[in-house]
C-alpha cells in the first residue's frame, strides 16, 4: 500500500525534457492474476499466474509510451487489462478521469469508444467470414452510429486514411497481404475516433520493409489525430524510434521507466542493461567489440515468482537485500524510474 501512495506522490513531479500534459491513463497498483484451478467438478483455486503484479504508471496525452520486455512478462496482459478486456484482480485504471475497473455494461461500452486496440497477428485479428467493409464498420454498428450509407462512406474514408484503396471495401481478408491486413486493423481501431490506442506488437508479425510503412502510418495518425499510444513491443530499436518514453517490464513488474533517449543512453537496471546489450548494432566494428551481458537461467514461472526482487535469480549484481525485499519503483533522476536495490 505504501508503494501505491508513494508513487502517486512522486509521479506528479514534472517530467524532464518534454512538457507532458495531463495523464490520459493513470494506472495504480494494477494486478492481474489468472487462477490455476484443479478438481474434477468442484474446482478450487490452487494457485495463480501473476501475469501483472502491481504496476504504477501514467500515460500522458499525445505521447507514445513503449512497453518492452521478454515473452511472458505481462506486456500484453497489461494492455488488455487497461482496456478491460481482462478485468483487473486489484488496482485502478483511471482513463480521462473515469475509473474503468468498476465500470460494467453500457457505461463501459460507452468508454470503449475512446480506447481501442491494434493486434499483433494481422491474420487472426480479422474475421475471415466478414468483408472488409463489415469489419471496419462493425464498431459503428455496435454503437449504432450513422445510417448504412453514412457507415459506408466512413469506411471509405478510413480505408483512404490508412492508405488502402476504398475499392477494396467489399473484399475479404484472405485477399490481402499482412501489411494490408494490419492497415485494415488500424482502420477498425480508428472507426470510433478513439483518443487512446493500445498497439499490441502491431509490427512484430510483419516484414521489415512493411514494418516501416505501418510505423509511419501510426506516427502520421498520431500527429494528425492527437492519438496517445501504449506501444507494446520487443524490438528495442523500433521502440527507441517511436516512443517518447519506455517502460521495461520483467515478470509482471516495471523495472525501469524513462524517456527513451535517457533509457537507451543511461540504463540503470541490470535487466535493462542486459536487454540493451542484446540489440545488434548496424556497424561491424562496433558490433565486433560489443559487450553482451548474457543472463543466466530462464524467466521464472509467474505462478511462483522468487522472493524478494523478481530478478534476483538471474541478476549479475544481486546482493543479500535483493533476496529479502522487493525494491520499489523510485524516481532516481527526474523522469527516470528504477526498481533496483543496487541503484537506489
Amino acid at each position: 500500500m505504501t508503494n501505491v501512495a508513494k508513487s502517486e506522490k512522486v509521479m506528479t513531479a514534472p517530467a524532464k525534457k518534454k512538457d507532458y500534459g495531463d495523464p490520459i491513463v493513470s494506472v495504480r497498483g494494477l494486478k492481474k492474476h489468472f487462477p490455476i484451478k484443479s478438481g474434477l467438478i468442484f474446482q478450487r483455486e490452487t494457485a495463480a499466474v501473476k501475469a501483472v503484479d502491481g504496476l504504477d504508471f501514467d500515460i500522458f496525452r499525445g505521447e507514445t509510451l513503449g512497453l518492452v520486455g521478454e515473452s511472458g512478462c505481462g506486456k500484453s496482459t497489461t494492455g488488455r487489462t487497461i482496456l478491460q478486456l481482462h478485468r483487473a484482480t486489484s488496482g485502478t485504471v483511471n482513463f480521462e478521469g473515469t475509473e474503468l475497473t468498476t465500470l460494467k455494461g453500457n457505461s463501459l461500452r460507452e468508454m470503449r469508444r475512446k480506447m481501442q486496440i491494434i493486434f499483433q497477428d494481422p491474420y487472426a485479428s480479422l474475421n475471415p467470414r466478414m468483408s472488409i467493409s463489415r469489419i471496419i464498420s462493425e464498431p459503428l454498428v455496435v454503437h449504432g452510429i450513422g445510417s448504412e450509407r453514412d457507415r459506408q462512406k466512413r469506411v471509405e474514408e478510413l480505408l483512404e486514411r490508412v492508405g488502402l484503396n476504398p475499392f477494396f471495401a467489399n473484399r475479404y481478408p484472405h485477399e490481402f497481404s499482412g501489411g494490408q491486413r494490419q492497415r485494415i486493423g488500424v482502420a477498425r481501431a480508428l472507426a470510433l475516433e478513439p483518443s487512446f490506442i493500445v498497439c499490441d506488437e502491431p509490427i512484430s508479425a510483419l516484414d521489415v520493409s512493411i514494418q516501416a510503412q505501418v510505423v509511419n502510418l501510426l506516427q502520421d495518425l498520431q500527429r494528425d489525430m492527437g492519438l496517445t499510444y501504449l506501444f507494446i513491443a520487443h524490438d528495442l530499436s523500433m521502440v527507441r524510434h517511436i516512443c517518447d518514453r519506455v517502460a521495461v517490464m520483467y515478470l509482471g513488474k516495471i523495472v525501469e521507466m524513462a524517456e527513451s533517449e535517457e533509457l537507451y543512453t543511461n540504463p540503470l537496471h541490470p535487466y535493462t542493461q542486459a536487454l540493451l546489450s542484446a540489440v545488434p548494432v548496424p556497424d561491424p566494428d562496433v558490433e565486433e567489440n560489443r559487450q553482451r551481458i548474457i543472463l543466466k537461467g530462464d524467466l521464472p514461472s509467474p505462478a511462483n515468482p522468487p522472493v524478494g526482487c523478481n530478478f534476483n535469480t538471474r541478476c549479475p549484481v544481486a546482493i543479500d537485500v535483493c533476496f529479502d525485499w522487493d525494491p520499489e519503483l523510485i524516481e532516481v533522476l527526474p523522469g527516470h524510474w528504477v526498481a533496483c536495490h543496487r541503484v537506489t
Binding site: 481501442q116 497477428d121 485479428s125 474475421n127 469489419i135 462493425e138 455496435v142
Partner: peptide, 21 residues
Amino acid sequence: KEFVEAARAVGARDRRIIFVH
C-alpha cells in the same frame, strides 16, 4: 482469436459475438 477480442474491444455483446463472429 484476436478478431473476437477486437469485437469485445469495440463493445460487442455476447449475442453479436456468438452469431456474427
